[in-house]
């Protein structure tokens, strides 16, 4: 016991220290550990919740983005369709206009050709008639008398000319 005394150990002080520690532990448990650990747990849940919400938000944003994309796609397709339709319409109209123009041009050309042919024919007939007259006149001049049977002579020349024209062309 003397050694313990020299080391300053006494049962009263030892007991007081034990009681002191016990009290301190109870006080700290109620005052410090429980509130702090609760707070840590609370904050942990809060953070987890926050993260989950952020996750949901980003999910929603992605969904909205996808929806936007589909809508844009649809609109684009519609625009494409409208444009294609417009192009088709325009082409059709252009085709119409062109074909009508062609038709008219054709008509005009045909008419012009017919006119030209008719004119040519008239000129030819006229020319034949004059040639025949001239030929008869020339023959009368040479023979020195009027040809009898004038009508037959005219027919004969006309036949000849027609024959020439037919083989000549």
């Amino acid at each position: 016991m003397d050694a313990l005394d020299k080391l300053g150990i006494s049962w009263e002080l030892l007991l007081s220290q034990i009681v002191n520690f016990g009290l301190l532990m109870v006080i700290l448990q109620q005052l410090l550990y429980k509130p702090v650990l609760n707070m840590l747990e609370q904050r942990k849940q809060r953070i987890a919740q926050g993260l989950e919400q952020a996750d949901q938000a980003s999910h929603a944003a992605a969904e909205a983005e996808a929806e936007k994309q589909t809508i844009l796609e649809e609109v684009r397709r519609e625009a494409q369709e409208v444009r294609a339709q417009a192009t088709r319409d325009a082409e059709r109209i252009a085709q119409d206009v062109r074909s009508r123009a062609d038709q008219e041009a054709q008509d005009i050309r045909m008419k012009a050709q017919a006119d030209a042919e008719a004119q040519t024919a008239a000129v030819m007939a006229d020319a034949r008639k004059q040639i025949a007259d001239l030929a008869i006149a020339a023959t009368e001049q040479i023979l020195g008398r009027e040809l009898a049977n004038r009508a037959e002579q005219e027919r004969f020349v006309a036949d000849y000319l027609a024959q020439q024209n037919g083989s000549g062309s």
Binding site: L7, S10, L13, L14, I18, F21
Partner: peptide, 15 residues
Amino acid sequence: SPSADLNMTGALALI
């Protein structure tokens, strides 16, 4: 310092 007092260290050791 309580740590330099054997009563305190002894008490903690006993506990």
